[in-house]
Design a protein around this nucleic acid. Structure first.
Lengths: 336, 336
DNA sequence: CCTCCAAATGTAAACGTTTAGATTTTATTC
DNA sequence: GAATAAAATCTAAACGTTTACATTTGGAGG
């Protein structure tokens, strides 16, 4: 009774050959009901569980995917992950989750480790959009779906948020409320989301004939600290902005902390619109107006695309989706 | 140049046998530098990546673990996961993450799926502490570590938080501030954390000679909604409590929303202490006093224990850790 | 009670590694 | 330069499946 039972053990116990057992396990039919019953019983008696490694050796597939994100503890990713994981489970897949801490090198190692383990596909929010570190990965042609951050040089599926539009909507709102000095705390311009949200900002200013002022653009790095620091910089300007648009959840958090610290009153002295609808948004007073991304849907769609690619092996062209963010209007922007 | 390169291909290219290649790959030494160089070159030329499935067939180990939690989108778990994942990566492990949606059946399926894939160990926050659904799993004797929720009937390592103490500290604080009508919105009494926090509450009342009042105990289910509803029940009491202790992050969120709705002023009409230091805590006005759990440390310790068990195969006794929570005093409890 | 055919079952090779044990090569000593 | 020991390398057998192909079995029809 030692070590895990194998298909051999089951075959012996049921008095049949391993081929027959295999057929039962895989539900391929062509087995006499009486025989099948014996086999099923043997399986239960021995608590037999099939060995995926051996199975993989023949069939290649592992029914396993990898999910690689820059930062597991950023609330955005667990929400995306939950969408992925749920859909994956429905299809009999199971997902590795790895964080890269925004490091290209770690990302490369993680991907290698995933390839070794034979994942059928990978969903990636890359730490480095230029994507040169991914060549090794691409060579293996394992299906890859980019989420949230694009890989412009790679022929892979994309699931992105329409960042330009989200930012545009936010700025438009602020402008319509009479603001003219609008600052943006944007993400690293080396990333698509960072760049696109800035573009949306500029487009809105342009469309409404407001002038663009360098001083109102602070480039953060998506961290809470950078949001905090940015507010400090804006506050000491000769003409501080009357409205601030923060480009991700963490920087929003930092921004709000800084405002609180500086006694720069949210909703009275300064209007704020944040990116991403975090818990926090409805708890600050006044409640925060935000651009909300459909995070779970992002994950679900990403898995669906990946799954399609895994199933049909023929090459299909690169597909790009841009889900629309939604402006959720609360109370943090006052009329000017 | 098609299909992934195998150790065979490398051997042919380098003009050696597969055994020698294997030795190089695994850094076992006993290979002439010149030979090794040829092999390394061949590996690079062919972009060879070793096949974990085949390797697993011989060595058993997969350098893979499973992490199973009730709810991926509850911020608590990603934080634990980040601790696990980081330590795991350092040791060359990679982790599956699965959510069970608090369902025993899903949990069972997920675990089976993990066993099939040969995980070396599992870190589990179970949906059902009685643990009967885990017998199949235990039979396989795969190392298992229980995190946050205990499995009292199972001989497995535990990494818990001292919930009793955390609750005690919170209630003690409230009592010392002069409160006598203190409510608790606790978790399901079928779970250890649910029960233990209630026990801590009772102990504190007892030690300070306050009488215990059934009406001030509301059993929630750890969901935001249940926290919200609980406050409703407390509010309509003839003698509403002057302080509320909420037993997890989601219920705290629900509680705060309800207070806001009812215009039951936090920190003025009612004091609140929450469990878990969520972002939100520093954003409500007044800032929330909380019992804070060391979530990342929880994950790190869990992996460490698991790793130890995986390494040394000899049976070691069951180990239990209780990490201490910390009372972080802010402004949400006023003197009575 | 044969024949014969389809259905059921069995046999054996392959998947890509690791590794014990056999064999070859190299270096050392006289 | 032969003998020998040590080092390097090779051969081949597993590991637990799946699956093409071979073989057996059970009945229907005569």
């Amino acid at each position: 009774m030692e070590g895990k039972a194998t298909i051999q053990d089951v075959a012996r116990q049921a008095g049949v050959s391993i081929a027959t057992v295999s057929r039962v396990i895989n539900g391929q039919g062509g087995v006499r009901p009486k025989t099948e019953a014996r086999i099923v019983q043997a399986i239960e008696e021995l608590a037999y569980i099939r060995n995926a490694a051996a199975r993989t050796m023949k069939s290649k597939a592992t029914k396993t995917i990898g999910v690689v994100v820059p930062d597991i503890s950023n609330p955005f990713f667990p929400l995306v992950m939950s969408g992925i994981e749920e859909k994956a489970r429905e299809q009999g897949y199971i997902a590795f989750l790895s964080g890269t801490k925004e490091s290209t090198v770690v990302e490369q190692n993680v991907l290698k480790s995933l390839i070794e383990r034979g994942v059928d596909g990978v969903i990636l929010t890359t730490a480095d959009e230029n994507g040169q570190h991914l060549t090794q990965f691409i060579e293996q042609d394992i299906p890859l779906v980019a989420v949230d951050r694009s890989l412009p040089h790679l022929e892979v599926d994309h699931v992105l948020v329409d960042n330009r539009k989200g930012a545009y909507q936010a700025i438009q709102r602020l402008i319509l409320q009479g603001h003219e000095r609008i600052a943006i705390i944007c993400g690293p311009l080396s990333t698509t989301p960072g760049r696109d949200r800035l573009i949306g900002y500029k487009e809105a200013l342009h469309d409404f004939h407001l002038s663009f002022n360098e001083a109102y653009v602070i480039e953060g790095d998506f961290s809470e600290q950078s949001g905090y620091d940015a507010v400090g910089q804006l506050y000491v300007l000769e003409e501080p902005p009357t409205a601030i648009f923060t480009c991700n959840n963490l920087m929003t958090t930092g921004c709000l902390k800084a405002l609180d610290n500086l006694q720069w009153k949210l909703g009275r002295d300064v209007s704020v619109i944040g990116f991403d609808d975090i818990d926090l948004a409805t708890f600050v007073q006044p409640k925060l107006t935000v651009v909300s991304r459909p995070m779970k849907a992002l994950g679900e769609l990403a898995f669906q695309l990946l799954h399609e690619r895994i199933e049909m092996k023929q090459a299909i062209g690169k597909r790009s989706y841009q889900l629309s963010p939604e402006l959720i209007i609360r109370e943090s922007c006052m009329l000017k």
